[in-house]
Amino acid sequence: MLHGECRAGRGGAVVEILLVTGSTRSGSTNTAALRTALEAAPDGVTVALYEGLAELPAFNPDQDTDSLPAPAADLRGRIASADALLFCTPEYAGTLPGSFKNLLDWTVGGSEMHEKPVAWVNVAPEGRGNGASETLRTVLGYLSTDIIDAACVRLTVPRGAVGSDETIEDPQVREGLRDVLRTIAKHVVG
C-alpha cells in the first residue's frame, strides 16, 4: 500500500478514491478532514491521500508534454489509477487557492480527468467557502468530469476540532465523511 492509504474492502470489487487537499498549511482543517476519511473508509472502499501539492511546479504549457515534470507525472498517474476523486479545499480571496488551481491546471492537458467521478467536501463554516466550491465546479466542468452532486457536501469543522494526530474525532464529521465515500462508491459501481 502507498503512504496514506487505507484499504477497507473484503472480497468483491474495491472502489479506489484519491483524496486531494487544496491546502498546503499545516494544521489545515481541509487536510484533517481527508486524513479522517482515511480512517472512516467503509468496506469496499480504498482511499489514498495525495500529498504532492506543494511539490508541483508552477504550471507551464511548454512543459505539458510527453515528458512531464516528475511531480506532474505522479499526479496524473495517481488520478488515472483512481476510480474517483474527493477534494477538500479552503477558499482564498473568494476562490480556489493558487497552489490548488495550479494542481488542476496540470490536469488540463491530460485525459485522466475526463469523465472521472469527482466530489468535494466544504469544511468551512456556513456562509464561507462557497466561492471555492463554485470555482471548483466550474473548473471540473471544464475538465469534463462526472460531478457527483449527492457527494458534494458541507461538513463544518471548527479549527479546534483537529486533534494532535491531525484528524477529527467528532463522530458526526466522521459519519458524514463515511457517507460521502459510500455515495461516491455507489456512483462508481452504478
Rank of each mutant, 00 (worst) to 15 (best):
L104F: 09
A82S: 15
D62N: 12
P117S: 06
P125G: 03
P125N: 03
A72E: 13
S67E: 13
Q63A: 14
L85F: 02
E115Y: 13
A93D: 09
T21A: 11
V123F: 01
L38K: 11
G129M: 07
E112K: 01
V108T: 14
D105E: 15
L19E: 03
A84Q: 09
P97G: 11
D66A: 15
E112L: 00
D66G: 14
R154K: 12
E126I: 01
L96K: 10
L19F: 13
L140F: 11
R76C: 00
A32I: 05
A84K: 10
W120R: 09
P71F: 15
T95I: 12
E115A: 11
T46D: 11
L18Y: 06
N102M: 02
E39Q: 12
D105K: 01
A48W: 03
I79V: 15
A54K: 09
E39W: 05
G44S: 08
G127S: 05
A40T: 08
T29L: 02
A80V: 07
D149N: 14
I148W: 06
V20G: 03
L140P: 03
A84G: 02
T107R: 08
E51Q: 13
T138W: 10
G27N: 11
M113Q: 00
R25Q: 12
L49W: 15
D62I: 04
I79P: 01
A84T: 15
T95C: 05
G141D: 04
E39G: 11
G94K: 10
V123T: 14
T29A: 08
S99E: 14
S144E: 13
R78N: 01
A84Y: 00
T138G: 09
C152I: 06
T95N: 15
G98L: 09
T31C: 05
T95D: 13
E126H: 07
D149L: 10
E126K: 04
A40F: 05
